[in-house]
């Protein structure tokens, strides 16, 4: 099967070409799974989101207007699928009218432990990475989606805004909130020193 560029791929997807569907899966599934895993925090839900994303994309390919790239469009579908699922699981975390754009009180840094100078071995060990993932799970879903797209998936601010239907300033503000919350949590974690696996509860 020869590779098609985005424009040709979209045309063939719209024509119902099965090989084009397969190419889209081949090119994008790993990325969407990664996003879903970081959003949902577990493999089972991530797989459900992955399947929902492609089923929904294939159903609605006719409405894709090519104002964004195919991959940003898929990110948008996947994030929506993840947020819907999270809303069902943890409705208190994903309120529609969240008061996130104001009230900076809870963002004021409280931890001032400078963990920058810790040995890389401490910062990069498995237990620290597990804590980093738990910290993502601990973010409210609306902050989590911005953080995952920007800082994990590496989308630009504009692409993230496009994928999430947010303004640029809302993306920047939520990203900052997410990063500050993660910094706070990692500071607390690293200030407690290395925890040996056998002493952990």
């Amino acid at each position: 099967m020869s590779r098609m560029d985005d424009g040709e791929l979209v045309a063939r997807l719209k024509a119902g070409d099965q090989a084009a569907y397969a190419q889209l899966v081949e090119e994008q599934a790993a990325r969407i799974y990664r996003l879903a895993l970081r959003m949902m925090g577990n493999e089972t839900d991530a797989e459900d989101v992955l399947q929902e994303t492609f089923l929904s994309a294939f159903r609605s390919i006719d409405s894709f207007e090519e104002r964004s790239s195919l991959s940003t469009w898929l990110y948008r579908i996947a994030t929506n699928a993840a947020l819907m699922r999270l809303r069902r699981k943890e409705p208190e975390q994903v309120s529609v009218d969240e008061p996130l754009e104001r009230d900076d009180g809870d963002l004021l840094p409280r931890q001032f432990f400078d963990f920058c100078c810790l040995p890389e071995d401490d910062l990069l060990r498995d237990e620290a990475r597990a804590e980093m993932l738990r910290a993502i799970d601990g973010l409210p879903a609306t902050l989590r989606s911005v953080f995952v797209l920007r800082d994990i998936e590496g989308l630009s601010t504009e692409e993230t805004a496009n994928a999430l239907d947010l303004s640029i300033s809302a993306v920047k503000s939520r990203l900052m909130r997410a990063r500050l919350k993660l910094r706070e949590r990692l500071s607390t974690y690293f200030s407690q020193g290395p925890v040996l696996p056998d002493t952990r509860q």
Binding site: Y21, E47, F54, L55, L123, L124, M132, D151, R183
Partner: peptide, 29 residues
């Protein structure tokens, strides 16, 4: 520490798409 936090997250290894998950996806589709 904010800059370090971001850099640590950038260094997180990307999880792979397990073959079994991909197979089930293709089956569903």
């Amino acid at each position: 520490t904010l800059a370090k936090t971001i850099s640590l997250y950038h260094q997180l290894p990307a999880p792979e798409l397990p073959n079994a998950v991909k197979e089930r996806l293709l089956a569903v589709l």
